[in-house]
């Protein structure tokens, strides 16, 4: 009689490994010095191996369904067969270790990236599309679940230059910023509308994904808007973000302040940023 821990490792190894069931069972039997036929009751209709196979098959089908739900546009782009082969390889390399099924797709874009060989520059751009699309769809899923600004009291209004100096802002916790090589907002929007569109041509853009009143908002940003929000997200300090953004883009502080004076009320209204008690 095997110890419970050994038995659990034996069955888990069969369930999560790739390959033919017969081979997986044989390998696990050998590795753990067990005999599946002596461990699992057979019945007139099903062998011990058949019964183990019900769990092994269910594991793959269940998790594939999750990945398909999280990356529908990527599945459309790659086609079912290619998507499935990547997804299955991903599950083999990174079997789930979280109690939360939403964590399953967390590393999928990195896995796709790592699966690519050394590429020429032209190839690299082409192959960047599925990786970027996976990142984009993952960001959509995360934004829909992260804490947001819903329910928080909102202070809006015009600031004036002095007000702008004396107010501190932070980005919404559900704000995601993506620097894209392809116009994915348009591509995914049209895909969701059921439009059969070809793969997008490369076009660099700065994109934002956020949530307001529980609805996802998507927007292409100017480079200064994107860099400012990124700096604000990283520093949580409005003044430091302005300085950092100016340094990055090599622009005068007054120039950026003038842009922010016009744009920040809208960004606040859209729920991208919110005012916090200033400790300036």
């Amino acid at each position: 009689m095997p110890e419970l821990n050994t038995l659990q490792k034996w069955l888990t190894s069969i369930i999560i490994r790739p390959g033919k069931l017969q081979d997986k069972v044989r390998m696990a039997d050998r590795h753990y010095a067990l005999n599946h036929a002596a461990l699992v009751d057979a019945s007139p209709n099903l062998s011990s191996e058949d019964k183990i196979g019900i769990y092994a098959r269910g594991y793959v089908l269940r998790l594939m369904e999750c990945l398909e739900a999280e990356f529908p546009a990527l599945q459309h782009l790659l086609g079912n067969e290619l998507f499935e082969s990547f997804a299955r390889a991903y599950l083999v390399q990174l079997p789930p270790n979280s109690t939360d099924l939403y964590d399953l797709g967390y590393k999928f874009s990195a896995f796709l990236q790592a699966s690519q060989k050394k590429l020429s520059k032209a190839e690299a751009t082409l192959y960047a599309l599925p990786v970027e699309l996976a990142k984009y769809e993952r960001a959509l899923a995360e934004v829909s679940r992260l804490p947001g600004l819903e329910g928080k009291s909102k202070e809006t209004g015009s600031f004036g230059f002095l007000g702008l100096l004396n107010t501190n802002f932070q980005t919404a916790p559900c704000l995601k910023l993506l620097q894209l090589q392809f116009p994915l907002i348009d591509y995914v929007n049209e895909f969701q509308l059921g439009v059969n569109i070809p793969a997008p041509e490369p076009k660099e853009s700065f994109a934002l994904i956020c949530r307001k009143n529980y609805a996802i908002t998507l927007q292409y940003l100017e480079d200064w808007q994107w860099h400012f929000l990124q700096s604000l997200q990283n520093t949580n300090n409005y003044q430091a973000a302005i300085q950092h953004c100016c340094n990055q883009l090599n622009i005068e502080k007054e120039t950026l302040m003038a842009e922010l004076f016009l744009w920040l009320p809208m960004a606040q209204d859209m729920g991208y940023v919110f005012q916090v008690q200033s400790d300036l």
């Binding site: 888990t12 369930i15 999560i16 769990y55 594991y59 269940r62 789930p96 270790n97």
Partner: peptide
């Protein structure tokens, strides 16, 4: 087991 979660009820 071994920090793997099959998301099945085994």
């Amino acid at each position: 087991v071994a920090h793997i979660n099959t998301h099945d009820l085994l």
